[in-house]
Write a protein that binds this DNA or RNA. Sequence first.
DNA 1: CGATTGAACGGTTTATATAATAGTCAAATT
DNA 2: AATTTGACTATTATATAAACCGTTCAATCG
Lengths: 214, 214
Amino acid sequence: MPAEHLDETATAILSAASRRFLHYGYGKTTMSEIAKDCNMSTGNLYRYFPSKLDIAEMFVRVLRGEQVENLRAVLQMSDRSPAEKLRDFFLLKFKIAYDRFHDKPKAYELSSELLSQRPQVAVEWENAEGRVLSEILQMGTVAKTFAIDDFAGTTKILQDAAYRFTSPAVFHEGEFEALAIELNGVIDLILDGFAFRAARKWGSENQISKAQAN
Amino acid sequence: MPAEHLDETATAILSAASRRFLHYGYGKTTMSEIAKDCNMSTGNLYRYFPSKLDIAEMFVRVLRGEQVENLRAVLQMSDRSPAEKLRDFFLLKFKIAYDRFHDKPKAYELSSELLSQRPQVAVEWENAEGRVLSEILQMGTVAKTFAIDDFAGTTKILQDAAYRFTSPAVFHEGEFEALAIELNGVIDLILDGFAFRAARKWGSENQISKAQAN
DNA sequence: CGATTGAACGGTTTATATAATAGTCAAATT
DNA sequence: AATTTGACTATTATATAAACCGTTCAATCG
C-alpha cells in the first residue's frame, strides 16, 4: 500500500502522471498522455496500476505521506515541551493545509475527487496523523503535564476541536493570520483543560504554575 | 430584514414558495408556479420580492430565526448551571443541524445554495448564535464558574472548536450517537479549560471541586 | 393613477448528438 | 512464455440546439 512497493516502471508512470495532475488536473490528464510520456502503450499502464484512479490514489498517498513525516518531525524537537509540541503540531497541520489549498489548487481538487470515491484513504490519513498526536499526548503524560488515560479517545477529540482549521472548506473565509490566532486560542483552551486535569490527578499546585508558564 | 416586515401578500408568496422549496427544492420551483399558487402573475411577484433568491433568503431567515429562538430558550432554564447550559447549547445546535440535514434535505440544499451566493447571511446567523453563547459565558462569569474577559473572542473560539459538529459536510460519516459522544468530549475539555482559568483567577480550590462535580 | 398583467428578452439549463477516453484483450513481439 | 501492443467497446465528457425560466416593462385594468 505505501509508495515503496513500486518498481522502476511504476515509479516512472506515477512521476509522469503526477506532473500532469499538478499542471492540468486529474480530469484533463488522459491515460494515453501518461503512456506517451513513458514511451509505452495505454494497455501496458494497466499492468502497473489497476485504474487511473489508483494512480491518483498513489499520488495522494505520497503527498500525504510527506505531510505526516513533516508532522512527525515535531515529535523530535527536544527543546519543545509536550504542550508546545501540541501547538506546533496543529499550527503546522493548519499551515500545510492552508498552503496546499492556496498554491496547489490542482492537488487540492485531485484530493477532493479521490476522497469522494475512496473515503477510506481519508480515514487512514487521519489515523496516521492521530498516531503522531497520540505520541505527543503520551510524552505529556510521562512528563505529568497532561493526565490522559484514553489516548485514542482524546486524540479524536483534539482532531474534532481543530477540525475547522484543517478543513479547506473554510479557508477562503479568512486570512492566514486571523485563522492562526483563532487556532492558538483553541489550543490555549485545550491546554488549560489538560492542565486542569493534570492538577486534579497529580494534585499539586506547581502543575498549575507550570502550565501557566507555557 | 426580519420576517416581521412582510405584509399579507408577501407572506402568502413566501408561504407558497416555502411549500414548493421544501417539496421540490429551489431549482425545481419556478416563479410561475409560485405566482399560480398565489393567483397572480409572475410580474407581480417582483413587487414584493426583488428576485427569486430573495424569497429563498427570507425562507432561510425564518428557519434560522426559529433555530436561534430554540437556542435562546436554553438561557432560560433556571435549573441548569452555566456549564450545563453551554453543553445544552452545543448539543441542541448539533441536533438541530443533524436533524435538518437528514430529514429536510431540500432545505439543506437550499441553505447551501443561498449561502454560496449570500455569504453575509451566514455571518449574521453565526453572530446571532454567538450572542446567545456570549450570554451563557457572562452568566458563567457572574457565577464565577468561568473567568472570561474577552467575551467576543472566547465566543469565536468556542464556535471554532465545535465547528465539526455544526458543519453538515461531516454528518454522513458517523451516526448521531457516536458524534454526540465526541461532542460531549470536546465540551468536557473546554469546561475543564474554563475551570482551570477560573481557579487561576479566583484562586480557590473549591472552584476545582465545583467544576469536577459537574 | 397606482396596481397588475403577460408577452418578450436574454441568460441558463436541459436534451441530444457527437467526440473522446478509460479500460479490455487477442494478437504480436521480445 | 512473459511482455507489450493497439484496435475495440462501453462509458463518460463535450459540443450544439432546443426548451425553459427569471426578469423586465409597455400595455391593460380597476
